[in-house]
Design a protein around this nucleic acid. Structure first.
Lengths: 155, 155
DNA sequence: CCGATATCGTTATGATCATAACGATATCGA
DNA sequence: TCGATATCGTTATGATCATAACGATATCGG
């Protein structure tokens, strides 16, 4: 086995630098999200679902039929993005679409029976997954994290 | 102006549900990262740089020449991903590549003069951007957040 | 020395993401 | 009523992302 190789590293140290990438909150958030997302895919990947797809199904389960655009806002996806997710879910018959009779602009999305059954299977898995992700933190720390992240996300 | 439209919402309430998507840490992390990333692009977008591209340049600035693979690990990108980022940066002459003479597998990546100059311009902007993202939090809360996120990310 | 194993970079596939521009529909205000 | 404005969904473009499979190179153990 070749050594794990910090081999090519040269400790050049340019000019300034009390700067560290690790101190940038965006970088930390990206890595934490990678971890959480990876945990979820490990558990629900066998269902061939991604985290955004799961979020979409879960939201429909919570709220019932929604227009494609509103659904997108509720799962934090742009119109062009939620469109593709809905198309994939529709192709697998997990959601169904119909026109809103009173507003011809809208496409209403809803879970199918199969979609509903799948979400009900997945919800406990996702809850367990969240627990796994939070293992490094104590109970009071988790509550603190939720508070802080919520305030960051909402601006 | 059409109303902001919770129009199509139907409060169907399926089976169970003390379940809420907002309680899943992955969903919160994704939204917080969206916010941070958006803040960064607002500020450095005029340089035609994305957050991952900036992270890559910043890491090279901190560490000097690195193999493509190690560089990828240090910015939390898969080999296939860091490859594309490096290609784009190389096309813009912000980084240069050369073969490692002692290990023919490696491609060494380093900043060009132009790349170095650009990073030195961008670092203060990024620091300001992090400050903006953290505005909702008080100083002690920021410290707490860093601690919690770090432990989540490192598993 | 040499085969087993590990690492590096590449290729291919598929799913997110954000942005801008566009036509169709809906609503508002004068 | 009717034009200005807003929303909805679509299309196109480009950048992330993760995964699996692959050849080339490097290292280790016997």
């Amino acid at each position: 086995m070749p050594r794990t190789s910090t081999k090519t590293e040269s400790p050049v140290r340019r000019l300034t630098s009390d700067y560290r990438l690790e101190d940038q909150v965006g970088f930390l958030l990206r890595r934490a999200y990678q971890r959480a997302s990876s945990n979820l895919v490990d558990r629900i990947g066998s269902y061939d679902l991604t985290a955004p797809q799961y979020a979409t199904l879960a939201r429909l389960y919570e709220r019932g039929a929604l227009s494609q655009n509103l659904l997108g806002r509720l799962v934090a996806m742009e119109p062009a993005n939620i469109r593709d997710v809905v198309l994939r879910l529709k192709k697998r018959r997990l959601v169904a679409t119909r026109r809103d009779p009173t507003d011809k602009r809208l496409i209403l999305i809803d879970l199918t029976a199969a979609g509903t059954a799948l979400v009900e299977q997945l919800i406990p898995i996702e809850i367990a997954c969240t627990a796994t992700t939070l293992v490094p933190l104590k109970a009071n720390e988790r509550k603190q994290l939720y508070d802080l992240l919520g305030r960051l996300a909402d601006g």
